[in-house]
Each structure stands twice: as C-alpha cells, then as structure tokens.
Design a protein around this nucleic acid. Structure first.
Length: 555
RNA sequence: GCGCCGGUAGCUCAGCUGGAUAGAGCAACGGAUUUCUAAUCCGUAGGCCGGGAGUUCGAAUCUCCCCCGGCGCGCCA
C-alpha cells in the first residue's frame, strides 16, 4: 500500500515536472512514510518541499496545486490533504484497511518473508575465530550478528552461504602446542613451567590429559610439536563447534587459510600485486603502496623473514571469494579489526575488484559487567567469560536476543547479574509471552468454539470489516509493515530493527488483549479476531525464527 | 598525536537515513485480576538529544570546531 501511494505521488509529480519542461532525471525520488501522529493520515510525503527548495518556489503553494491531482489519481482509494509547510498527507479510504487485512490474511504463514533478493548469492563470513581456545562473549556477539543477518537475508530470498575463515598455522598455534606439551609434562611430574605468553586456560590441561590417555608417557621427551598441535587444534575446534551448535549457529564452509598457500593463491596474489606496480621491496620486506590509497603509510605484505603478514592472505582470501561469483559479501568483525580492512579493501580495489560488493560490519565489543564491575578479558590469560558460561547463565534465547537487540556500533553493556534474573528486564520474554498468549487463546478457542477452525480462517470465511476497534487497526497497520521492516533490517544488516519491530508488535497485542475479548459469543466477530491473532502469531513466530529464538507455546 | 565508534529520561537503549508535539523498557509513584496466561495492561512523573557555530521552510539526524568515554594505530592476527 505504501508503494502504491509512492507510485501515485510520483506519477503526479512526474506529470507536473514534464509540464514545467524540467529534466526528468533531476526529479528526486518520492518516498512516503507512516506518520507518528495518526491525525496526519496513513501516509505522509515530504517530496514537494524538497522540490520547492530546489526550484525556489513556495512549498505550500505547490502542494496545494498538486494535492487534488493526487486525490484524483487515488481513484477512491483515499484522499490527499496538504498540511504544515507542504506535507502531502494521504488518508486511505475506510475500506483500505480491510483490503490490507485481506492481503495479510492471504500471506498466511509466509508473513514477513519475501523474494526481494531472489536470484542473488550472498556470502556471510562470521565468527572466524582461530582455534586457540573457547569462544568468549565477544565471539558470541559476532556469531549472533552473522547468523541472524544470514538468516534474514535468506528470508528475503537471497541464496546465502555462511562461512568461517580460520588459521591453524603460525606462531600462535606453536605457542598453543607448547602450552599443551608443558601441561603434558607437568602431568608426568615434570617441573617445567608455562612460557610467559603461554595459554593458561584449564582446557589446555584437559587436552594434555587426552594426549596422556592416548599416548601414555612415550612423549615425555618428544619434540614433536606437530602432534601436540594436532591435539590442540582438534580439541579447541571441537569446543568451538559444540558451542556454536548449542547456540544454533552453523556454517556451510569452513575455509582454512592454509589452503591459500597450498593452492598457490598467496603467490598468485603477490605476483598480481607486483605486476600492477602496487608493491615494492625494502629492507628485505615486500610493501604495499597503501599510502597511495589514503593510508598514513605503506604496509608490509611479506616480512623480511619471508612470512606473509595477515594482510596478504586476507587479500588472497577475498580474491578467492570474488572468484566464486557472489553478488554480495559480508564480513563481520569485532572492533579490533577496525584498522585492518581499509588496507585490504584498498588493495582489492587497486586490483580491479568491485569493493562495493563487500560490506564490512564492525561491531563494538561487549562489555561484561559483573557485581557492578567491568570484567577485563584476555584469551591468553584465561581471564574471560566463555560463551558457554553465558548461555548457562541466561539461556540460549536471551543470549542471541541480547547480542543483536542493539545497533552494532553501540557499546553494549551485558550485565550478567541483570540477565541472570530472567525477569522483566529481559525483552525476549516479553515477545515470547505475546506468542505464548496467542497460542493460549487459540487453545481456548478450540475448546469453546470447535466449529471455528484456525486452518479455515481465510479471506473467504472471515469478515475483516468487523475489526473496527482502534487497537485492531493499529495492529493491522503494524503488521502491514512487517515485510518491509524485515527487508530493511536484512539489507542494512541491522538485526536490531527486527527486535524493535517485534517488541512493538508484542506491545500492541498485549494492549489489545487487555482491552478486548478475542473469543466472544458472536462467531463472526470471534473468527475475525482469531484471524488477526493468527496473523500476529505468524509475524512473531517468523520474526523469532529469523532471530533463532524459540517461539514457545506455553510459558 | 592520528583514525574509527559512541554520547538521547536516574539506568539500558530506539528514533524508519532531513519532517510535524523526541519514544520504549527498567527503576519511582498511583491504579486494573469473578476474564482467553498479571511474565500483562492503564495512568503520573521524568529531556538544553554532550557543548557551540553553520547549512534551510525544518536538524537528535547533514558540515565544521571543541568536551567526555571506548577501541585501534607492529615486519602480531
């Protein structure tokens, strides 16, 4: 309906524009919005004022001129009025709400889903933690964002690939392997101490125990780090995958950085960069001319030791993703990666890749507050709260919901003591409760009115005109925005827009519930209200499904 | 010092990309339960949208300058 209004206003403006002999291409796009104040009509359009500004005309006078043309073109669907400095306010005809209701009813359990991105392939990369230890709450936010953005994109028709990029080679893994070996030797009574930067976590000891179990004492004097590394990687990855599975987060592809070397992609990338004159050698290292692309100085691609820095594999990895032909690629990073991606993007751009196909989502880290104090975290020192511990405390649903209920860029304070309460502070219960309540009403209706079958509530059997209460119209109006909100949330990669929408929907339902009986004596009215309740349930259920949260039927 | 992110009610945060009188939840206070779930609802109170200038019909939103907080600034990832 909104698109319809936008189209009509656009047509009216285009006609006027042409009559003035103005360049069609310069006409601004017309957008309508739902005004906060219902007395301003169902849709409001500020486009006239934008034009008037450009042309140096009085906006109010221009609006007065165009307004009747809009009404005329609405052909009975509604009327237009001018207000304020030149708003065009469109009020829909009395039965327009009914038409919206019927259309929503016909959507059935597909309410909220669309095919906006049909035929397009998108790759979402998230978590991507290297296998050095358990996932922390920081990874949790990354996982929730990536997973939910991916699900929302799938919900609007995209073909989504979920990817995890990891590196199980390099110095950090050697440190990890040596930490396991030290613990192993300690288990055998050795006096060896962990190296200064060693991994101190309890899980290292568990891994050492596994080694002991499977190899006995025969590795006491072994220098075979590869073996310890093998156990360390296998164990930490198993931990990570188990945690993600518990959280309901999955990936289609686990991409090992190592394959970039074995496939020669690192070398090919380096050669390509050199061939384009984007790199040079100095002090035994290979440098990327980053300063030419706005960086404060050039960056090292290959160290004088011959080992690449993280940049080179990152660039090679993205070339690899480009080669796979995605229409869109999304990377989810924590704030610590903030400074790394501009170099990578600049280099990819210089290599001729369309970096507009790449979206980098940077989320701020989660601050954990416990006993009123901020908990400082470090993986090395094993001073952190794991994602598993968090889920133990507040449950999977609340964990997922909390991680995405705020804008990515906001610094998000996760108060453990508060979250543990599982009380009113927790909006996820509010939304779930609305769903459970509707289910309860449906159960009640099945008992009271067996003749009213939920599956038979459709446009032919339900008289939507009976829904005249303002609360009902508010609900229909809000439901009508469902699909668009989900599209916007998905396309802008902002899951919090969905949670905000669902909370509002739940609020409108709770208010409605408190003021009106749904299962009333009159069958026709009861059927109409039931149909509305079912629609709300579909919207809530689909929204919760996109968030990966249980739509509980009883609470 | 440079860069990025943030600053909106006592607290935690929305604000549909420049629209009309800035909104929720929690906390506070006062009400609603013979009822389909009170994990709910209704009401009251709470604001210099960090500060200042600019852009224009119009700014929480855009530009510039300050202030405060977080993060990053390596031949670590």
């Amino acid at each position: 309906m909104k698109a319809h209004v936008e189209q009509i206003v656009t047509e009216v403006m285009r006609d006027w524009w042409q009559a003035q002999h103005l360049t069609p291409a310069e006409m601004p796009t017309v957008t309508a919005s739902v005004p906060k104040d219902k007395s301003h009509g169902d849709f409001t359009c500020a486009a006239v004022m934008a034009i008037a500004k450009k042309l140096g005309r009085n906006a109010r006078a221009l609006a007065d001129e165009l307004c009747p043309l809009v009404t005329q073109r609405m052909a009975g669907d509604g009327t237009c009025a001018v207000a304020g400095p030149g708003f065009l306010n469109v009020t829909l005809a009395a039965d327009a709400g009914l038409r919206v209701f019927v259309r929503l009813l016909e959507r059935g359990d597909q309410l909220g889903y669309s095919q906006h991105g049909a035929g397009k392939r998108v790759n979402v990369e998230y978590v991507s933690a290297n296998p050095t230890g358990p996932l922390t709450v920081g990874h949790g936010r990354n996982a929730a964002i990536g997973d939910i953005v991916a699900t929302m994109l799938a919900a609007i028709g995209y073909d989504v690939t979920r990817e995890y990029y990891f590196n199980d080679a390099g110095n950090q893994m050697n440190v990890l392997a040596r930490s396991v070996r030290t613990r192993y030797r300690q288990l055998l009574g050795g006096a060896e101490q962990l190296e200064e930067n060693g991994y101190q976590g309890e899980y290292i000891i568990d891994i050492a125990k596994t080694v002991l179990q499977e190899h006995g004492e025969q590795l006491r004097d072994s220098d075979d780090l590869a073996l310890f590394k093998h156990y360390a990687v296998a164990a930490t990855f198993a931990m990570i995958k188990a945690t993600l599975a518990r959280m309901g987060v999955r990936h289609d592809i686990y991409f090992n950085e190592h394959t970039l070397y074995s496939d020669g992609k690192i070398k090919a990338t380096l050669d390509e960069i050199a061939a384009r004159g984007l790199s040079y050698e100095q002090d035994g290292a290979v440098w990327f001319r980053a300063a030419q692309f706005g960086a404060e100085k050039d960056r090292v691609l290959v160290k004088s030791t011959g080992e690449p820095t993280y940049r080179l594999p990152d660039i090679a990895y993205h070339r690899e993703k480009f080669a796979r032909g995605y229409d869109w690629m999304i990377d989810v990073f924590g704030a610590d990666h903030l400074t790394t991606y501009p170099d990578v993007l600049a280099c990819l751009g210089a290599l001729g890749y369309a970096t507009t196909k790449l979206t980098v989502l940077i989320h701020q880290f989660v601050t954990i507050v416990q006993n009123g104090e901020i908990v400082k975290m470090s993986t090395r020192k094993a001073n952190y709260i794991t994602l598993d511990e968090l889920m133990d405390d507040v449950g999977v649903d609340a964990t997922r919901y909390f991680f995405v209920m705020r804008k990515l860029g906001s610094h998000f304070e996760f108060d453990l003591d508060l979250a543990k309460k599982q009380s009113l502070d927790n909006p996820v219960f509010y939304v779930q409760y609305a769903h459970a309540r509707i289910c309860s009403v449906l159960r009640h209706c099945a008992e009271e009115k067996p003749q009213l079958k939920v599956e038979q509530l459709n446009a032919a059997t339900v008289n939507g005109a009976l829904l005249t209460a303002p609360e009902e119209q508010d609900l229909v109006r809000h439901l009508a925005q469902c699909e668009e909100i989900i599209q916007q949330a998905a396309l802008s990669c902002e899951p919090h827009r969905l949670t905000t929408y669902l909370e509002k929907l739940a609020e409108l339902f709770h208010r409605y519930y408190n003021q009106h009986q749904i299962v009333v004596a009159d069958d026709a009215l009861a059927a109409a209200r039931m149909a509305l309740a079912v629609m709300i349930r579909h919207a809530l259920r689909n929204g919760l499904k996109m968030l990966g949260i249980t739509a509980v039927e009883r609470m």
